[in-house]
Design a protein around this nucleic acid. Structure first.
Lengths: 154, 154
DNA sequence: GTGAGTGCAAATGCTTTGCAGACGT
DNA sequence: ACGTCTGCAAAGCATTTGCACTCAC
């Protein structure tokens, strides 16, 4: 199959990175990567399926899960479970960041890892535990819901 | 049924707290509370079932889930999903704390909430997001696995 | 006595797996 | 051509739900 036809928007580096890992470059894998790239943030397996099916209707959910598993194992993708029982996937980018998950409206904000540097250090020193700087999830209540809650109290 | 026979080890305050909420006090509910109290840390629904079945064989998993849901809704129990797709439950105690989940050996350490105070504040100020002080889960690598990894590199 | 709570069994939803066939190398 | 990868269908697993019965109040 013609690579150029199917991955016009894919960073060529991904193809190389797959090859370098000794795994085969297939249209399905490129499409999963494109789906991840298109949704700069987090995306579920099912969302990848629906997005991919637009251009490659025959693609199968099992293939997507297997592809994601492979991409995670080679460090190209990070998986986060926001406590919902549903896994979210995203490309591992240059800048590590984390997620603030609102327990009320389920919105997900991203936090730059720099903001958590003091946390990493205090936990490393206090507990000898090296927190992962790639995909933490912090739960709480976002600004909008905080405001709404305050309103209802009055 | 005789409460005293079935909840000799249960804090009487739990019975009162249930009554105060207007929910019925049943042996199943007391046993779930005892199971949670017996495992001071985190425990899965299935572990509660096995523990409870020792003294009350007829108890059912669905009942345990429904009981946990109720206990969470009245604030007696906290639920954490450590990214494994399995929920862990624990009694909400006096001192808020969080969990450090080792991605290698799956050990779970507890962190006092005080250690995260700077984090709460910096996120509140920087993002207007009020992080939950009850059940955060932080992922990373524990001391033992860090040491083991260092060994293997040499 | 009444309705909240329970047990049972079946259903749900996400994810994984077995296997035969397809395709990247 | 070889062996990896895919599609399909079925299984797994934690959790939820519908319903008739039971028991705490």
């Amino acid at each position: 199959m013609d690579d150029n036809m199917l991955q016009p928007h894919t960073e060529p580096s991904y193809v190389e990175r797959l090859r370098r890992q000794g795994v085969r470059v297939t249209p399905q894998r490129l499409i999963v990567l494109e789906a991840l790239a298109a949704h700069s943030g987090h995306i579920t397996a099912d969302e990848i399926l629906r997005w991919a099916a637009l251009r490659y209707p025959a693609i199968n959910l099992a293939t997507i899960y297997r592809t994601l598993e492979m991409l995670i194992s080679i460090g190209l993708v990070a998986q986060s479970d926001f406590g919902s029982g549903i896994s979210y996937f995203e490309l591992v980018g240059e800048a590590p960041h984390h997620h603030l998950v609102c327990e009320h409206c389920h919105a997900v904000l991203e936090v730059d890892d720099k903001a958590l540097q003091p946390l990493h250090e205090s936990i490393l020193h206090g507990y000898g535990f090296a927190t992962n700087s790639r995909h933490l999830a912090l739960f709480g209540c976002c600004q909008a819901c905080l405001a709404a809650l305050e309103q209802s109290v009055r």
